[in-house]
Simulated scan of single mutants.
Amino acid sequence: MNPAELGMILMAIAAGAMMPIQAGVNSTLALQTHSSTMAAMISFVVGSIALAGVVMAMRLPIPAMGALKVAPWWSWTGGLLGAFFVAASVILVPKLGAATMMATFLAGQLTASVILDHFGWATFPQHDLSPGRVAGVLLLFAGVYLIRRY
C-alpha cells in the first residue's frame, strides 16, 4: 500500500470513528432542545457554517449557474440524505446504543454500496456483484445480530 492509499484509509477510519461520536453529541443536543429534529437542524447549520468557512479560506470559486443547471436532479439530494441520516442517528442512538446503531448503519451502507457498485450508479465505478461481496454483506448482518443479541 502506498502512502497516499494509507492516508485515505486512515482518513476513512477517522471519519467512521466520528459517526458514533456525532450521534452521541447530537443526541445530547436533542435532550437539551427536547427535539430530535431541532438537534439535527442545529447540527446542519453548524456544519454549513464550518463548510462556508472552509470554502472561503480555500478561495474556491462559486460554480457557474450553467454547470449547476446541467447537474442531474438526483445530485441535489445529498443534503436530504444527510439530514435523514443525522435525524435517524439522533433518534436511534439512545434507543439502540452506539454499537447496534453503527453496526446496523454499516450493514445498510454496505448493502447499498454493493448495489451501487454492481450497476455503476451515481458515478461509482462498476464492480460486479460476487459471492465474496454477498458473503461480506451477510456477515455484516450476522455482526448486527451478534452485537444486538449479546
Rank of each mutant, 00 (worst) to 15 (best):
V25R: 01
G120F: 02
A103Q: 05
A4Q: 14
A112K: 03
L80Y: 09
G78V: 03
R148K: 14
S48C: 10
A57E: 05
P72F: 02
Q126F: 04
I13V: 15
L129Y: 07
L146A: 11
G108W: 00
A50E: 05
I115M: 04
I13D: 09
T123D: 14
G78W: 04
Q126I: 06
L6G: 12
S113Q: 12
I115K: 04
A88F: 07
L92Q: 09
G24E: 04
V137H: 07
P125A: 03
S75I: 05
S89M: 06
A83G: 13
I49G: 07
F119G: 11
I91M: 05
G47L: 01
A12N: 06
W76C: 08
P3F: 11
Y150A: 07
M102G: 01
A87P: 00
A122D: 12
F85C: 10
A122W: 14
L139C: 14
S89H: 07
L60A: 13
V70K: 11
G53K: 03
P61F: 01
S130Q: 04
S36Y: 03
A12P: 07
A52K: 03
M11V: 15
G53Y: 02
T104S: 05
A50V: 10
M11T: 15
R149H: 15
G7I: 08
T28S: 06
V54R: 05
I21G: 09
W121M: 02
M56I: 13
A98K: 00
A40S: 06
S89F: 02
P94N: 03
M58V: 12
A40P: 00
K95R: 11
M102F: 09
I115W: 09
I21Q: 06
L29H: 00
L110V: 13
M11I: 14
A67V: 11
G143C: 08
L6M: 12
D128R: 14
L138P: 14
N2I: 04
T100H: 06
S48N: 12
L140K: 04
A4S: 14
A107F: 06
A23N: 02
V70Y: 04
A52N: 06
G132S: 08
G24S: 04
P125Y: 02
M18R: 09
A64R: 12
F105S: 08
